[in-house]
């Protein structure tokens, strides 16, 4: 064998083996820090919450004993849990629906070409960038029975004081209104992006065919916007489902339990009564619900893609 030929071949093999190793492990190596941070900040807490949910850890049992699924059995029979599920459903459903309708309406309204539209859109986004606690404190003042602006306006009109946050029939609606005020811009933003990314040809064809505005909206805009609508609704639903700050500041979950959502109830169990195990079990239930939301979104998106 010609050695002059053999030598370089061996070197090439070594190099290719090294490159193969580098190609294989470098990405893992580069990703490792991010994965570790993610694991520490997300996976570990989730795992720990699941573990806690299977124990009776709390102020009466600081070390906690393993009790299997007992906490979940207790949840099943806990009327306060079911009441908070009802409130959470009303809050999430009411807020997201109102935000969607308003957000879509505003997006359609501002979808044309007119002067000052850019500024108007920017202003529309302001509520969304505000801290929820500040938003809630501001609205609490507006709702206030003594110095509140709304009651002042109503009194000038000769109408009574409805006690926005104090009236069990109004409190949840008042809280939803604040969420709608803050998060309608989010819907508007996503739906505007969707409207602007639609192809123009079908609309031109529809116009040529003499289709009316309503028919165009129903048969063209809505189907073409389907994906973005699903994303917007599910993102907002997940976020509304987890809302804590606005409700806590506005009503503390009251009057009574009128505005006590699952997050508020879970907070009481974990951080006021220090039933950590039970509170963790409530969090696991919420985690499952959010996971279901996400699964629905992925399913619907995949169906569309297919």
């Amino acid at each position: 064998m010609d050695r002059s030929l053999e030598g370089p071949i061996v070197v090439t093999r070594k190099r290719s083996t090294r490159r193969w190793r580098v190609d294989r492990f470098l990405p893992a190596f580069m990703l490792a820090p991010a994965v570790l941070v993610l694991a520490a900040l997300t996976l570990f807490p989730i795992g720990y919450v699941i573990y806690l949910s299977l124990t009776d850890t709390g102020v009466n049992s600081p070390n906690g004993s393993f009790i299997g699924l007992d906490n979940f059995r207790l949840i099943k029979d806990d009327p306060a849990f079911w009441d908070s599920v009802r409130v959470t459903g009303l809050f999430t459903g009411g807020a997201v629906l109102a935000e969607f309708v308003l957000g879509f309406a505003i997006a359609l309204l501002l979808n044309g070409k007119m002067r000052g539209l850019g500024l108007l859109r920017t202003l529309m986004l302001l509520p969304m960038v505000m801290t929820p606690v500040i938003v809630a404190l501001t609205w609490r003042m507006l709702y206030g029975p003594t110095y509140g602006y709304f009651d002042y306006l109503l009194s000038r009109l000769g109408l009574g004081q409805p006690n926005w946050l104090d009236n069990s029939r109004l409190a949840l609606v008042s809280v939803i209104a604040v969420d709608v005020w803050q998060w309608t811009p989010f819907m508007f933003l996503l739906l505007t992006a969707g409207l602007q990314s639609m192809p123009t040809e079908p609309f031109e064809a529809a116009r040529v065919d003499g289709a009316g505005r309503l028919a165009t909206f129903r048969h063209l805009t809505l189907p073409l916007m389907r994906n973005i609508i699903i994303i917007a609704l599910i993102f907002r639903a997940i976020d509304a489902f987890d809302t804590f700050d606005i409700i806590w500041v506005l009503t503390n979950g009251g009057p009574g339990t009128t505005t006590q959502t699952l997050t508020i109830y879970s907070y009481f169990q974990s951080f006021r009564w220090f039933n950590f195990g039970y509170g963790a079990a409530l969090s696991v239930v919420m985690l499952v619900v959010v996971a279901v939301f996400c699964a629905i979104m992925v399913l619907l998106m995949n169906r569309e893609t297919a």
């Binding site: 009236n167 069990s168 009251g254 009057p255 009128t258 009481f268 006021r272 009564w273």
Partner: peptide
């Protein structure tokens, strides 16, 4: 806390 909810409900007129 549970008792306080009842008191608040009574004051608010919920029950």
């Amino acid at each position: 806390d549970r008792l306080s909810i009842a008191i608040q409900e009574a004051i608010a007129g919920t029950a």
